[in-house]
Every structure is written in C-alpha cells, then in structure tokens.
Amino acid sequence: MTPPTPTVRVDRDKDTGVAVVTLDREAKLNAIDLPTAAQLTAIWREFRFDDTVRAIVLTGAGPKAFCTGIDRTVDVPQPPSPYAIDDPLLTVGPKANDLWKPVVAAVRGMACGGAFYLLGEAEFVVAGENATFFDPHTTYGMVSAYETALLAQRMPYGEVARMALLGTAERMSARRAYEVGLVSELTPDGEELAAALRSAEVIAGHPTEAVQGTVRAVWATREAARAQAYAQAPHLIALGNLPPDRQAELFGKRGTDFRIR
C-alpha cells in the first residue's frame, strides 16, 4: 500500500534546537484531513524522543490561512451511540500527545474552527497583522464545544461567546486578538514566522528540564477546568448538532463566504 502523501512538513535546526512544523495543504487552506491528523499525532510523539528538538514553531503554508479546521470533505464515521463521538482533532495537539516541549504558533491569514485545537495547546501565539480568527460552527448547525473550552482559557468570556455565537459573521482581527490576549505578539504581515522563531530560539537555549517543567506547570493551572469542559462536550455536541446532511446543506449555501473572506 502506498503511504499517504505528507501534508505536514517538519524542518529541524540542530544548531538552534528549534523545529518548524508546517501544515502543508495550502490549496485546501491547511484544513486537516485524516492523514494530516495522523501525521500531526505522529510528529508530536516523535518529538518526545528527539533531544535535538527543544522548542517548536507551528505554522501553516501560504499567506491565506494558518488552518481552517477539519476538511469538510472528510467523512468521519461516528459510533451509533449518543454517548460516544469520534473527533479526529482531539489528538492533533502536542499536549494531547504528552509533549511538554514549548510550542509557539505563527499565524498568517485565517485561523478558524478546528484550528483552535492547535492554538489552544500552543504556549503562545504570534500573528501577522492581517490574520483573522473566527469559529464557524453555529453557522453550519454545529455546537462549538472543544474549541470554546480552549478559547475560554485564553480570552475573556464575552469575547469567546461573541466569536462562537456569531459564527462566520464575526471575524476577530489580529489587533483585537492581541488586545484580548489570544495573540501575544503582533507583527507586520509576513513577519510572524521570523518573530516566532526568535522567541523559540531563546527558549530552546534555556535548560530543557526547567523549560518543560514550566510548560507543564502552566498547563496544570488550566487542566482542571479544561478537563471538566471536555467531559461535557460529547453530550452537548450529540444533543445540539444538526444531522450531517443538514450541516452539508448549510455549508453548501454559505461555504463560499467562509472560504474567501
């Protein structure tokens, strides 16, 4: 069997100790299909054993998007029970794979929906001034549960609620994301990757045990609230999501607007 074409690119710099992980589906606005999800999981788990990698920068290929969530053309089979939901994005982040090396996200263009699984597990976010953040779930008849749980640990309640409830009608600018705490550094468009690399290189130069311990300590302060929210998410999604055919109908009507803005 021919292995799937790599859709995630990894570039290691052994001199600095920084690896750059790039979502490499530019033609699909770096949406995550099942092979991409599997590759991300494998990469994070591989980094656990690679002492040459001490910090990571996560970004997306091209100027249009960091990541636009799950690829809507992917068919994800679901168990027939309302008590079980298979979400392939639950394991695409570093923390979900027991990786405690720091991750800095560099965002250019759109970051929406399932992108927050990745941004929510990064230590901090650097964004170009033309980046935009939004959550399309409610527009397409879906409950935003995991995404909002992660966003609520980075932004004030009202900002999370506004983004999630307004769906594709609300686009948070990079400037506003910086003002409310989702973004920690704002750069001219196209300079976000270089800025993220500068921070990652500084971090990679510190003693690795202290760095990873600090990452774990910071994450632990948020873990209890996140775990409780995640425990409720499957039931809320099962109760609130429209049937897949109705979701597809709404996406077909409004998906073009989502893509081009």
Rank of each mutant, 00 (worst) to 15 (best):
residue 117 Y to Q: 10
residue 117 Y to T: 08
residue 119 L to H: 01
residue 121 E to T: 04
residue 124 F to A: 00
residue 125 V to R: 00
residue 131 A to N: 11
residue 134 F to R: 06
residue 135 D to R: 04
residue 136 P to I: 07
residue 140 Y to V: 13
residue 142 M to F: 00
residue 142 M to N: 05
residue 143 V to M: 11
residue 144 S to C: 10
residue 144 S to W: 01
residue 145 A to M: 05
residue 145 A to I: 00
residue 145 A to N: 04
residue 149 A to Y: 02
residue 149 A to L: 01
residue 151 L to A: 12
residue 152 A to I: 01
residue 154 R to S: 13
residue 154 R to L: 14
residue 155 M to R: 09
residue 158 G to D: 15
residue 159 E to R: 13
residue 161 A to Q: 11
residue 162 R to N: 12
residue 162 R to G: 05
residue 162 R to I: 09
residue 163 M to K: 02
residue 163 M to N: 02
residue 163 M to G: 05
residue 165 L to C: 06
residue 167 G to W: 06
residue 168 T to D: 14
residue 169 A to R: 15
residue 170 E to A: 07
residue 170 E to K: 07
residue 171 R to H: 14
residue 172 M to L: 10
residue 174 A to W: 02
residue 174 A to P: 04
residue 174 A to E: 05
residue 175 R to Q: 09
residue 177 A to N: 05
residue 177 A to T: 07
residue 183 V to G: 11
residue 186 L to M: 09
residue 186 L to S: 02
residue 189 D to Y: 06
residue 192 E to N: 03
residue 193 L to V: 13
residue 194 A to Y: 03
residue 194 A to G: 09
residue 195 A to E: 11
residue 195 A to H: 02
residue 196 A to Q: 05
residue 197 L to F: 05
residue 201 E to P: 00
residue 206 H to E: 13
residue 207 P to L: 13
residue 208 T to R: 12
residue 212 Q to S: 06
residue 212 Q to N: 13
residue 216 R to P: 03
residue 217 A to N: 06
residue 218 V to N: 02
residue 220 A to Y: 02
residue 220 A to E: 09
residue 220 A to S: 14
residue 221 T to D: 10
residue 222 R to E: 15
residue 222 R to H: 15
residue 226 R to V: 15
residue 227 A to P: 08
residue 229 A to E: 15
residue 231 A to P: 04
residue 231 A to V: 03
residue 231 A to L: 05
residue 233 A to G: 05
residue 234 P to H: 05
residue 237 I to R: 13
residue 238 A to K: 03
residue 238 A to F: 02
residue 241 N to F: 08
residue 243 P to D: 09
residue 243 P to K: 06
residue 244 P to I: 11
